[in-house]
């Protein structure tokens, strides 16, 4: 990092190819580049090991290869996550949760590569994902229950005189779901990457004693990789819980 450079500079968007479509600036930026890499990686990682899968019944063909085991691990992880939170009806929403989890997970993880760009550290991206989930879940609730969906805001078994107080609270908490969902991911990524850069600045500033923040950075990088996984997991499990709420109300 050059002297005097802000630790927030890493979040700057740099256009690679300027594209203008009907007056909208849809330039291909470094953010879009890392989205491309993430998408390509996920598709290759999960598709290629299963391309050669033959329809045979001999035992040797059924032994999974290493790559297949790795892909299965991700598949079964989301499968059990959905089964635990939503149950049998959750199978329909498996591709959505899987896509969300993998997109955020590998976006976060690739962001840990030095000089790369973390597209999940941008509030507009996380907010778009969270709003997508929010709109999907709300529409799902109305499709499943119609007007009865509004009973979601009425907590059962509560005295009537409490309702005027609690219904607005419930509605506000429901509407703040996309905000909390997006800000949680965005803030975690922002804070982690900023902290890494700030301590990286100390390394050169402290000279010989820069070894201390360097050790700290190494430990922090491990923690950031954990957070990269954890935040993707939180996003996925909250999506599952919202789907469960929309399907079963209370």
């Amino acid at each position: 990092m050059a002297k005097g450079e802000s630790p927030l500079k890493q979040f700057e968007i740099q256009p690679i190819v300027d594209i203008n479509f009907l007056g909208f600036d849809i330039s291909f930026t470094n953010s879009a580049l890392w989205m491309t890499i993430t998408t390509a990686f996920i598709l290759i990682f999960f598709t290629v090991p299963f391309l050669k899968a033959k329809k045979t019944n001999s035992v040797s063909d059924l032994y999974p290869t290493r790559m297949q085991v790795a892909a299965e691990l991700g598949f079964n992880f989301i499968n059990s996550l959905l089964a635990d939170t939503v149950g049998k009806e959750g199978k329909k929403y498996f591709p959505l949760v899987f896509t969300l989890f993998m997109f955020i997970l590998f976006g976060n993880l690739f962001g840990m590569i030095p000089y790369s760009f973390t597209f999940t550290s941008h509030i507009i991206v996380t907010l778009a994902l969270a709003m997508g989930v929010f709109i999907f879940v709300t529409v799902l609730g109305f499709v499943k229950h119609g007007v009865k969906f509004f009973s979601f805001f009425v907590i059962p078994g509560l005295p009537v005189y409490m309702l005027p107080l609690l219904i607005p609270i419930e509605i506000i908490s429901y509407l703040s779901r996309p905000i909390s969902l997006s800000v949680r991911l965005f803030a975690n990524m922002l804070a982690g990457h900023t902290l890494l850069k700030v301590f990286a600045g100390f390394v050169s500033a402290l000279g010989f004693f820069g070894i201390l923040p360097l050790v700290f950075i190494i430990a922090l990088t491990g923690l950031e990789i954990l957070i990269a996984f954890l935040q993707a997991y939180v996003f996925a499990i909250l999506t599952c819980l919202y789907i469960n709420d929309a399907l079963h109300l209370h």
Binding site: I13, P15, I19, F24, D25, I26, S27, F28, T29, S31, A32, M35, T36, T38, T39, T99, F103, F119, H122, I124, V125, A128, L129, G132
Partner: peptide, 14 residues
């Protein structure tokens, strides 16, 4: 100024 670009590419890749 890059909001629309980010949203567009996010939508495309997602």
């Amino acid at each position: 100024e890059f909001f629309i670009s980010q949203l567009f590419w996010l939508g495309v890749f997602f």
